[in-house]
Design a protein around this nucleic acid. Structure first.
Lengths: 201, 201
DNA sequence: CTTAAGTTAGCACGCGTGTGCTAGAAAACG
DNA sequence: CGTTTTCTAGCACACGCGTGCTAACTTAAG
């Protein structure tokens, strides 16, 4: 048998090429040819790993989702430990910051995310893909609020459903403002801390 | 001289055709040809009113911005009157709802808005166009908070700059969730009301 | 009616696109 | 050394694209 190549690795490399093109030129320029150029591959070779452009772009977005999820789950173990030490508030903020693009890597992810958002309004396939990720962030918010509640850090008269939606929207709004450069990372962190702190009253 | 046509009207008609195409097929399909088809015009005729595709799309976005601004200013007169009657809280919520896509017209506007957002990250022209609109919403938030503060409806120890950013992000997040269908109009209004109410404590 | 200006229509060019397809290169196995 | 399998390269096709350009149509003015 011939030169064997790590299939999965090649695919993520190509996904990364897609990301670079999208961030540089926009998703409308993420053509098969352009991505192949970016990855220093012929377009025939690219098509050996992705049989269609749709598949390529879908994978590129799924790969972003996967990375975010990995980061959240990585922080989840540390979360439970620290919570028992009474630092619930800070832990919750740290956890939520895993979703906020407050460093360059996360900012890049959020840019890709935003680039695909309008497409998800039109393409049902995209919408289905993102559904679980969106639900994941919502659920993260809910769990954080539940955690706060359990440690008496959220006023009992507050409506969990409503607070979940509020926190979720706040996070997505802050994300948007970071990506568009309308707000500094510092301010975003302050706002998030203030919001979580406010929940106690 | 020949049949004379209302230039401004034709341009807004074409902008509306752009909107329909974007909402149906996505901004990447808003080609000169497709828009001309949608408007029942030849593409030569379209080019008589817009000398380039860029100009057409730019105008289509500016027209959205203009409509939102008109609606806000229309509500501004009613605002001052009602504020003096002590209904400050409700008035503020009403005013902020002018920006939220809680009816079909505003939802359509927000969809267009979202469709152009990724483009604004790459195209400096687009970014410049949207700058003033974004600043406008931020300023609206600030003014609302100032109003609340003046009537003792915002706790004095709160930081105006931080609360502005929080309210602004919340609104943009809620907008996003309305456009993506992740949240109902009812819930969004409840959340906004709750948020404004919370500012007093 | 003639004239001229406003408006419409659409062809033509060069380019970039996604995908079907074939041929060759590379390397492990018998 | 062949043989076989994995990978790479790239041509070819039909299509849609933005724009430059010209010709025709429509209608108010003289």
């Amino acid at each position: 048998m011939p030169r064997v190549v790590d299939h999965a690795r090649r695919r993520t490399e190509l996904a990364e090429a897609v990301w670079r093109v999208i961030r540089r030129d926009g998703v409308e320029h993420a053509s098969v040819r352009e991505v192949a150029r970016e990855a220093n591959l012929s377009m025939g070779s690219l098509r050996y790993f992705f049989d269609s452009q749709d598949g390529l772009l879908r994978f590129a977005m799924q790969e972003v989702m996967r990375r975010v999820q990995v980061r959240i789950e990585a922080g989840a173990s540390a979360r439970d430990v620290a919570m028992r030490r009474g630092k619930t508030g800070e832990v919750v903020v740290d956890l939520l910051e895993q979703v906020l693009p407050i460093d360059d890597e996360r900012l890049a992810e959020a840019q890709i995310w935003l680039a695909f958002t309008p497409r998800a309004l039109i393409d049902p396939q995209m919408q289905a893909l993102r559904q679980e990720a969106d639900d994941g962030v919502r659920e993260l918010c809910r769990q954080c609020l539940l955690g706060l509640s359990g440690f008496g850090l959220m006023a009992p008269e507050r409506n969990l459903r409503q607070e979940t939606e509020r926190l979720w929207a706040l996070i997505d709004g802050l994300t948007l403002h970071l990506v568009t450069g309308h707000t500094s990372r510092r301010t975003v962190r302050q706002v998030l801390r203030a919001h979580v702190g406010d929940l106690a009253h």
